[in-house]
Simulated scan of single mutants.
Amino acid sequence: MAAPLKHLINATTVTHAGQHLRRVWPAFDHLQFEQRASHGLETRAFKARAMQLADALQATLPDNFCAACDVIENSLGPPLALDAQGEPVALVAGPRGEGLTGWVVWSLGEYVARRGMNHVPRALACLHALTQRLTAEFAIRPFLQQHPEASIAVLHHWVNDPSAHVRRLVSEGSRPRLPWGLRLQALVADPAPTLPLLRALQDDPSAYVRRSVANHLNDIAKDHPDLVAEWIREHRREASAERSALLRHASRGLIKQGHAPALEAWGFGRGLQGEASLSLSTDHVTVGEDVGLHVTLRSTAQQLQPLVVDYAVHHVRANGSTSPKVFKGWQLTLAPQETRTLDKRHSLRPVTTRPLYPGRHRVDLRINGQTCASADFELLP
C-alpha cells in the first residue's frame, strides 16, 4: 500500500529547508524555524503540514518582504525537468544539495501569498520562480482575488514565457474552481477575463499546459455550459489533433450530462435512429461485486450515425432517495442498418467519494444525451 500523501512533507523536508535558507542567508534562525515547523508535524494532515511550515517561515524570514523573496529565490534548486512532450519528469528534480524544490514550495508560496499583498509585482515575480520548482497555483489565487487587474495583466505577459511551468500557471492558477484552491468567485460569475489567456494557450506545445487549459474550460462549463459549447463549436474548425484532444477533455462533463449544445458541437446532436436495448447480467448484486451490462443497438437509418453511449446508475442514498451518476460507455459510429452489441462490467466496490447503500438501483442507457433503455438490479449489503 502506498504511503499516505501527507508524508511527502516530513521532518526531512523541514531540515532540508532550514539548511538551504541558512546557506543563502547566514542570519536565518534555522533552529527556531525547525522547532516551529516540526512541532507536532506527524499528527497533522497534508495541507496542515504545509501551512505549519508557512507559519514557521513567517516567524523567521526577513521582515522586509522583498529581502525575504531574495532569500527564497536564492535557496531554490533548478527548475523541474520536462520531457519532449512538455510533461514534468518528476516532482523533485536533482539531488537535495542543489536547492529547494518539491513540496516545500507549497509552503514558500503560501508565505508569499500571506506577506505579499502590498508588494504585488515582487510577489508575482517570486511565484514565477516558485512555480518552476513545483507549482504556485494555490499561492497566486489570493492575488487574483484581491488584485485582479494587476494579476491578470501579468498573466498576459506570462502566456509567452519560455517556461512551460509558468505558462501552465497562467491557466491552472486562474481556474475558477481549482480543487484544494481558493474559489475565485468573480471568475465563477464571469470567466471573460481568462478567456483570452486560454485562447492563447490552447495550442501550446506542452501537453502539460494544454491539459490545464482543458481542465480550466471544464471548470467554466460547470457554471457556463453554453459558453463552453460555443467555444468547442468555434475552435473545432480545422483543429489539430492536439487541440481536438484538449476540446474533448474540456467537454467531458458536458457530454456525460447530455448537454445538447455540446453534443451538437461534436456532431452528436441527433438521437438514435433505430432501437436500443439494455440487459443486466443479474438481478441481485452484493456490494463489492460487479454487474454486467449488455447493450444491443439496431440502426434503421440510411446513413452513418455517430453515437456517444453512456449509462447512468441511480444510486440509493442513505435516506432512501436515489441520485444518478453518469459513467462513460462507448463512442462509436453505427453503420446504416447495422446491429451492434456492446458489453461492459460495472463495479460496485465502494469508494470514499461514493458510499453504496442497499436497495433497488436503476440503470439508464443514454445515447447522445437521451435515455433510450433502462434496467434495474437489487444491491445487497
Rank of each mutant, 00 (worst) to 15 (best):
A2M: 00
A3V: 07
L8V: 05
I9M: 01
V14M: 05
V14E: 09
H16F: 02
A17N: 06
L21T: 02
R23E: 07
V24H: 14
P26R: 12
R36D: 07
H39M: 00
Q58W: 01
L61D: 01
A68K: 05
A68T: 07
I72Y: 01
N74R: 14
P78D: 13
A81G: 15
L82S: 09
L82C: 13
A84T: 06
V92W: 14
P95R: 05
T101S: 14
T101Q: 11
L108Y: 07
G116R: 03
H119T: 04
H119A: 15
P121K: 10
L124S: 04
C126D: 05
L127R: 10
L127W: 12
L127V: 07
L130S: 10
Q132S: 11
Q132T: 11
L134K: 06
T135C: 11
T135Q: 01
A136N: 04
R141F: 07
Q145I: 00
S151L: 03
S151K: 01
I152K: 01
H157P: 07
H157M: 11
H165A: 15
V166W: 15
R167N: 09
R168K: 10
S171R: 05
E172T: 06
E172R: 09
L178P: 06
G181H: 12
L182H: 13
L182N: 13
L182A: 15
L184T: 07
L195I: 13
L197V: 05
L197C: 07
L201V: 08
Q202E: 14
V209Y: 13
R210Q: 08
L217H: 15
L217P: 14
N218D: 11
N218R: 12
I220M: 13
A221D: 02
D223F: 04
P225V: 07
V228C: 08
W231F: 15
E242C: 10
S244H: 13
A245T: 06
L246N: 09
L247S: 13
R248W: 12
R252L: 11
L254F: 10
P261G: 10
E264W: 04
F268R: 03
G269H: 03
L272Q: 01
Q273D: 09
Q273R: 05
L278A: 08
L278W: 02
D283G: 07
V285F: 03
D290S: 15
D290M: 12
V291A: 15
G292T: 13
L293V: 12
R298C: 08
S299C: 10
A301W: 03
D310T: 00
Y311R: 09
H314R: 04
R317F: 04
G320K: 02
T322Q: 08
T322W: 00
K328H: 09
K328P: 06
K328G: 02
G329I: 13
G329C: 11
W330F: 15
L332S: 02
L342A: 07
L342Y: 11
V351G: 08
V351A: 10
R354Q: 15
P358H: 00
H361W: 01
D364C: 07
R366M: 11
G369L: 01
Q370M: 12
Q370W: 07
T371I: 11
A373C: 02
E378N: 03
P381S: 11
